[in-house]
Design a protein around this nucleic acid. Structure first.
Lengths: 349, 349
DNA sequence: TCTCTTTGCTACATCGATTGTGCAACCGTT
DNA sequence: AACGGTTGCACAATCGATGTAGCAAAGAGA
């Protein structure tokens, strides 16, 4: 074995085995039965291939078969437990099927998202999941043109199957929990619930705000606009907003509905500077789950979206070749503070 | 544009523009100058290509050029802030170079790791980073055979460039911090420091244990074997071990050096069941950083490995075509409890 | 006008695997 | 012995892009 030996190809194996390249190809693949290659020949060829450490060139195969064996997924960012839970499950299901997952992050920028879709199309991925799409219509258009099956996860699209959490239910449950647990009751601004974070224009946030509003209205305390602070997802801006709110109210409000983990990071930056008694005036809830957030200084109620379930449903769409507009809902789960939750991959830690 | 229109190829563009496929190829690439294609022709072709929404078939290009434009990275798992920080930086640097990152998780299983390497070789990735390798020698052997450049990150290999954290320094600093901050001093078992988690056989854990031992020895209190509990990385087993330790000692030890975030998850599962005064008997340190862990009920000193720096150095090796055994160290940083730390991607949250 | 160079482009082989088609060799019948 | 059927394999086209080699036309120089 020379140091610079190139990878061996079916032609090398053919030469070594005395068979033709097409026979080698068939013998190494599934088609040798239908192509009537003698079992003894298959064995010989496979032995030689193994000795040579042969492995197929997927580019060549992909070119010929017009499928790559690659499957794509776009997430907003890697640095977030919800999205990485999606990644982990996406990868596990892909591998189960002998596919290679390509996971890219869009950083929530439509331009980047488009570039990624185009690139993945160039690589002929067999299908594509888009989590947290920022511009689903464009994505769908590009995919249709390339005849690429795609599923929206978490944020739905208008022209392809979507699998999303039941945001309304999750948010309604969380809001009810905050209402029930808030340390003070009353109607002054400080005694109200506030929702912070997210982009009012995006689907998930929209549904959650809706639920927040519905539950409060039902409870006879319809929220004022000031109670809904959709300041985006960046930790820094959440920190600023919560500080401003604290100043405005002269303390924390009775309850805070935090709309995502990144927002919670920012909120923490402010809350943790406060004296413990200031914190006791408030109850915190967060949409999305993080194992460490479960054990903070103050209790945080969380909504754990069923990432594994979302991905499972998305793969089901693929397996059943669903291509039309459908919306599948997966129930999230409320997790009480200070609960030890085992992720599906916890044993691999 | 018909619904099932196949992707257009250089042949389509050739037909539409009246030029030959090779001219189209040259015109759309970089080589048109050296191949003396008239600038006007280039413009015409590019216009048509844009109209048709042409994008190159990377499988064909990769087949021909024997490079894929894909770059691979293996991490143990996605569901961990340190590794996802690596992913995020790996991806950012790849994109800067117009490459497509393929990130796969090995779940710390050597068999899976090998399978992934083989697959990535099949796809002709242009280079490969391996973080937390479980069997670096085999990986190196496979890569050499395929003539694939590879860099080890976090855990070094013996036959390729490696970029690792300065584990000894990070762990020594953390140990010193725990020594300084421990609430009780003395020599009874409860008054000692304990290190929990990790695999004594792996490089990073080995260095950290070494540092732990060195610092304690220097301080005149060399650790007994019982003070080092390398129980792996799974949260569950860490939870069991810390519970057992608590029972044995009749309380928490003066200081706990937690060897990874997954281990900290398990430790928390036990600690949080304890009364607050039990916690005050102990000081906690964790190797690796998580933003939420910074704000727990009790202070946690953390060591933030410079994921971005590690990846930057690894890319530098690639850019300079370093292939021989080298070991680059990147300094980690100690982060005090309750510090707001901005990740390089925080603004994108 | 004839040669020589430059310009602008085309033809064709190639990368490695897959697959439709074809063709010997061999078998068993009548 | 002639025939139809099966078995086992080889040949060659193909996927789409790249790059070498080469050719015709135009321009330059004598």
């Amino acid at each position: 074995m020379t140091r610079t030996s190139r990878k061996s190809t079916i032609y090398d194996i053919a030469r070594l085995s005395g068979a033709s390249p097409s026979t080698v190809s068939a013998a190494l693949g599934e088609s040798w039965r239908t192509r009537r290659i003698a079992e003894s020949t298959v064995e010989t060829i496979r032995k030689i291939a193994a000795e040579q450490g042969y492995s197929a060139n997927m580019q060549a195969r992909g070119l010929r078969k017009a499928r790559s064996g690659l499957v794509g997924m776009i997430i907003p960012l890697h640095d977030n437990r919800f999205f990485t839970a999606l990644s982990q499950s996406f990868e596990a299901f892909a591998r189960e099927r002998g596919l290679v997952p390509v996971i890219a992050s869009s950083l929530r920028e439509p331009e980047e998202e488009r570039r990624i879709v185009e690139t993945l199309i160039s690589y002929a991925v067999d299908f594509l999941f888009i989590a947290g799409a920022t511009d689903p219509d464009t994505v769908s258009r590009m995919c249709r043109k390339a005849n690429l099956r795609h599923i929206f996860v978490d944020l739905p699209g208008n022209d392809a199957p979507s699998v999303v959490s039941d945001n309304h239910k999750g948010a309604a449950d969380l809001t009810r929990r905050l209402l029930a647990d808030r340390p003070v009751t009353g109607a002054t601004p400080r005694e109200r619930l506030y929702l912070i974070g997210g982009d009012a224009g995006d689907y998930a946030t929209g549904r959650r705000i809706e639920a927040f509003r519905d539950v409060l209205t039902e409870a006879g305390m319809p929220p004022e606009p000031a109670q809904i602070i959709a300041c985006g997802y960046a930790p820094r801006s959440a920190m600023r907003e919560i500080a401003a709110l604290y100043d405005r109210l002269g303390g924390l409000p009775a309850g805070i509905f935090v709309n995502s983990l990144t927002v919670l990071e920012g909120v923490l930056g402010h809350l943790s500077g406060l004296p413990p008694e200031a914190l006791r005036a408030s109850v915190i809830g967060c949409y999305d789950y993080d194992p460490f957030a479960a054990w903070l200084q103050f209790p945080v109620h969380m909504v754990r979206q069923d990432a594994h379930g979302l991905i499972r449903e998305a793969y089901r769409m693929i397996d059943n070749d669903v291509r039309d507009l459908t919306l599948t809902m997966v129930e999230p789960e409320q997790i009480a503070p200070r609960t030890f939750y085992d992720s599906p991959f916890a044993d691999r830690g």
